[in-house]
Write a protein that binds this DNA or RNA. Structure first.
Lengths: 226, 226
DNA sequence: CGTAGCCTTGAAGGTGATCAATGTTTGTGG
DNA sequence: CCACAAACATTGATCACCTTCAAGGCTACG
């Protein structure tokens, strides 16, 4: 747990907190290590915990009536998931959360949220920050609806790169399949493959066992704003 | 102002507050009556106020690189807009807000938010509720990306009807153009017109000067889940 | 009475979906 | 460590949905 706390202390959420304070905020919390593709919680299950991503990544997905999945968000270390729902009594998760690669999270009971977190102005503010960036991301995606597929994929990749690596890095640190890209931009796998294969051939990107490397960032940026 | 307070007291946000409490929360607030199509604030302007819709409606729009607009959200009476951004110092509005029909709002300075609102747990919780439903709406929309246009339009109409009227009503109380529907579902005006003209012919909907009436709700509901 | 905003209709064409088949890599149990 | 299954990537052909472009009509309002 001390290990955990020290890595949490580096996240945006807890940056201005002491180890003691963090420990108090984690009351009743439990570390969970998820394997690749393991589910943390399922849509429609009763929401009794929220979670903080410590390492790895979660995809927040929702099945559609048509049978396919839609990926709403990729949660990176430091992200809080299912926090908004904690304010509702007896509510169900609106989405499912699935690990991408080996992932560590802390799950915290609703009761801790409603006692410790809800009365901590600083934390609430941080959570709002997290929500704000999530909302911004959804807006950015929606603003691309009428753009062509290559632009959408390019934007998504850039966004993921920034969200997971900060600046400068060019290799996405999570295993990301073409299907997942398709599910997040609202396209079919085949179409995503056609676009990305062309990029690979032109040397714009490179893929080594599900890890995507951006070789020519300038080109991707350009594509994202056509 | 007393008039205003009494209509605010009926909103979800202030339902459990006394008139005095409401007045305190509105410190520095100013009533604004907007005409149809008048802009409350513009994207990229410095965000110094947030607002509560009292009557009418606002569309929250964002221009895209391709030149067209995207409508992110339709704000109904009781909705709070630009609240999330209040936590950031010197931030700009990420979207523009434009009145649909004659609209009354209260604009409240950032300073009030950061003093009175930020220290009021109850209010923060309510705001989270507002955000939650906004997020849910974005999710619902995203879940429809791969659906066909008629389904998207049907879903959007149902969602607006619920958001603006509660239950049971069948006439949308805001002037809503085909262009606005198109901008909100990510389609072209022409396509929206083609779909809705067919509905009009079949007697599923009726339009009288920009007010849409749902005649056969069952059909619309059915269409929304194909 | 002219302009602005909105609605309508038709024709042509393209982007991306769907379907189907196959190759490749990863993982697992005997 | 091999064999087989599961997950993932690929390619081609066909076709539907929706966009785009163009032209015109209707209604409200200053």
């Amino acid at each position: 747990m001390t290990q955990l706390i020290s890595s949490l202390a580096r996240t945006q959420l807890f940056e201005d907190r002491s180890a003691d304070q963090i420990e108090a905020l984690l009351a009743g919390g439990r570390e969970r290590r998820l394997k690749h593709r393991e589910m943390l919680f399922r849509a429609d299950d009763l929401a009794e915990h929220f979670a903080i991503v410590v390492e790895g990544a979660l995809k927040l997905i929702r099945p559609t009536i048509l049978g396919n999945d839609v990926i709403m968000f990729f949660a990176a270390p430091g992200d809080v998931v299912a926090a908004l729902i904690m304010h509702h009594a007896h509510a169900a998760y609106p989405i499912s959360a699935v690990a991408m690669g080996p992932t560590t999270v802390i799950t915290i009971p609703k009761s801790t949220f409603n006692t410790v977190w809800a009365s901590d102005q600083g934390i609430l503010q941080k959570i709002n920050g997290v929500l704000f960036s999530r909302m911004s991301e959804m807006h950015a995606q929606k603003a691309m609806t009428k753009a062509q597929l290559p632009s959408k994929i390019a934007r998504q990749i850039i966004s993921l790169l920034e969200h997971f690596e900060g600046e400068g890095e060019t290799i996405l640190p999570i295993p990301l399949t073409r299907q997942e890209i398709a599910d997040s931009v609202g396209a079919s796998v085949e179409s995503v493959i056609r676009v990305m294969s062309e990029w690979s051939q032109k040397g714009v990107i490179r893929t080594t066992d599900q890890h995507i490397e951006i070789v020519r960032m300038d080109q991707i940026v350009e594509l994202s704003r056509i």
